[in-house]
Design a protein around this nucleic acid. Structure first.
Length: 476
RNA sequence: CGGGGCAUGGCUCAGCCCGGAUAGAGCGCACGGUUCGGGACUGUGAGGUCGGCGGUUCGAAUCCGCCUGCCCCGACCA
């Protein structure tokens, strides 16, 4: 850990990730096994993520609310599949105020049950619909194998819960949110996700249909980065969410739920990061540009700081950090901010002051190639442009990487080679849960989601005719 | 839950096998000096109930027993 350089991605991707999360000060291990502390730098990133989502949710008519952390245990048992899905990972409070509770309280692993209970109280008429509520909060799931951001006992997320009068409307909502997730991933996080329906065995416990966005990490493994569920009437029936329609007929609502968690931070790290450290997309980076002033003598400092301040003042809409730390060398600072993934760095030294220039370094292009000298003149326009260029380049780079690692495969031998060594397999697939389980058993690859497909083909595994294509990959 | 490992300054570890007086190193931290355009050098210094409890012994970080915690590997998950 005291080595200056990270373990490289090719040496050990998992170790690279662990070291990077700690050294970039995104998060740290908490005293309780499996729990994490999100440090200020990581939380600042999360806040930017929240903001980008929140704007999109509000723009589509959703409102925020807060539901309680503790749920009566009996709620969890009302929806059959939901119980089975979550039973093994519940944390349960049995004592309160020093006394054994009459009914144990579950620490929410997700809030369908309590929100459903409230909806049944609030919804009576078609005039009350739709209900479009989102909640930003934390949940607890008792995971065995944990990893910072990707899988922890407690994590932070948003969970949207909506209720609708018709099946069509609920489906529309489910897809609308899936598209918001994909749009966020591409345009804010620069992650070119694949969006699609999950298989029966991978869907949310209690859902009718689950959709997800799937991202490819730097080691080609897949990471489910957001899910949107059409719950049909399953929860409405379990929680008695009913309304009178225009014809005075009592109907069950159609509900949806959808979530994106702090796991998306892991996706950003593993999509863009390199052996130098994080590479954060400018749209989300807590610090978009760092300025490292360089000087030796007092009179140099004067002139340099004057130029630094002029740049800061000239870019009111750029999130800038001036690294004026004493006692560390510029070289140390360069490496430090590269570790933290700041998209753009400028160095201003005596020579620059003299020549009217800036030394500019792009984080998305490592080494000398990303460095250039620019005239001080005009920085107000070219620096914001440069940030957009970096954003676009990160998406383009990640897209190429993804496309280079997805392979069309039509037989099991090639399939194994692909998912074990190369990346994702895109295959014709005749739905068969048993075969899906077998494939998982043999190759550890899971069905990530359905792909868009045209026409018909032969299932690579069963040999049957099908009109469906899917992605298989090893996943986190 | 099954198997394996570890527990010693803030961090990573040495010392333990073969018991002996003030328990070491590197990194980090504090202060000073020289440095400063790609991870500086140097001097001084602060910091440890050796995970806990019990036992053996003249004497335990070291040997024995119990307990606790953590990490790694195998079945689920945003």
């Amino acid at each position: 850990m005291d080595e200056k350089k990270l373990t490289t991605q090719t040496e050990n991707f998992s170790e690279w990730y662990n070291q990077l999360v700690l050294r970039s000060e995104m998060a740290d291990y908490a005293p309780v096994r499996g729990c994490m502390v999100v440090r200020p730098y990581g939380w600042a990133l999360w806040e930017n993520i929240q903001k980008a989502f929140d704007e999109r949710f509000k723009a589509t008519g959703h409102v925020n609310a807060a539901f309680p952390l503790l749920i009566p245990q009996s709620f969890m048992t009302k929806e059959k599949e939901h119980v089975e899905g979550f039973a093994p990972e519940l944390a349960v409070v049995t004592y309160g105020g020093g006394e054994l509770l009459e009914e144990p309280l579950v620490v929410r692993p997700t809030s369908e049950t309590i929100i459903g209970t409230m909806y049944s109280k609030w919804i009576h008429s078609y005039r009350d619909l739709p209900v479009l509520i989102n909640q930003w909060g934390n949940v607890v799931r008792w995971e065995m194998r944990t990893k910072l951001f990707l899988r922890t006992l407690e994590f932070y997320w948003q969970e949207g819960h909506t209720a609708h009068a018709t099946a069509e409307e609920a489906q529309e909502e489910t897809i609308k949110i899936l598209n918001i997730y994909a749009d966020f991933a591409r345009n804010e996080a620069a992650i070119p996700v694949v969006a699609g329906q999950k298989s029966e065995s991978e869907k949310f416990a209690g859902a009718k249909v689950t959709y997800s966005i799937e991202a490819m990490m730097g080691d080609t493994k897949a990471l489910q980065s957001g899910t949107s569920h059409n719950l049909g009437q399953n929860f409405a029936k379990a929680f008695d969410i009913k309304f009178l329609d225009e014809n005075n007929q009592l109907q069950y609502c159609y509900t949806t739920s959808w979530g994106v968690s702090t796991r998306i931070i892991g996706a950003i790290i593993m999509t863009h990061g390199d052996d130098q450290g994080l590479v954060l997309p400018p749209h989300l980076a807590p610090i978009q540009m760092v300025i490292v002033p360089i000087f030796r003598k007092e009179e140099e400092k004067q002139a340099v700081m004057e130029a630094v301040n002029a740049v800061v003042k000239g870019l009111p809409n750029v999130r800038i950090k001036v690294d004026d730390r004493q006692g560390v060398t510029p070289g140390f600072k360069f490496n430090d901010w590269e570790m933290k993934g700041v998209p753009l760095r400028i160095e201003i030294g005596p020579k620059d002051v003299q020549n009217g220039t800036l030394a500019l370094a792009r984080r998305d292009i490592p080494g000398r190639d990303g460095k250039s000298f620019q005239p001080m003149q005009g920085f107000e326009t070219y620096i914001p442009e440069m940030l957009e260029t970096i954003q676009a380049n990160m998406l383009a780079k990640a897209t190429k990487f993804r496309d280079d690692h997805i392979f069309d495969v039509d037989n099991f031998e090639d399939f194994k080679d692909v998912v074990e060594n190369k990346g994702w397999a895109k295959v014709w697939w005749s739905d068969d849960a048993e075969n899906e389980a077998k494939i998982k058993e043999i190759t550890k690859a899971t069905l990530r989601c359905y792909a868009e497909s045209e026409g018909e083909g032969i299932c690579f595994y069963s040999g049957r005719k099908t009109d469906k294509k899917v992605y298989f990959a090893r996943a986190y």
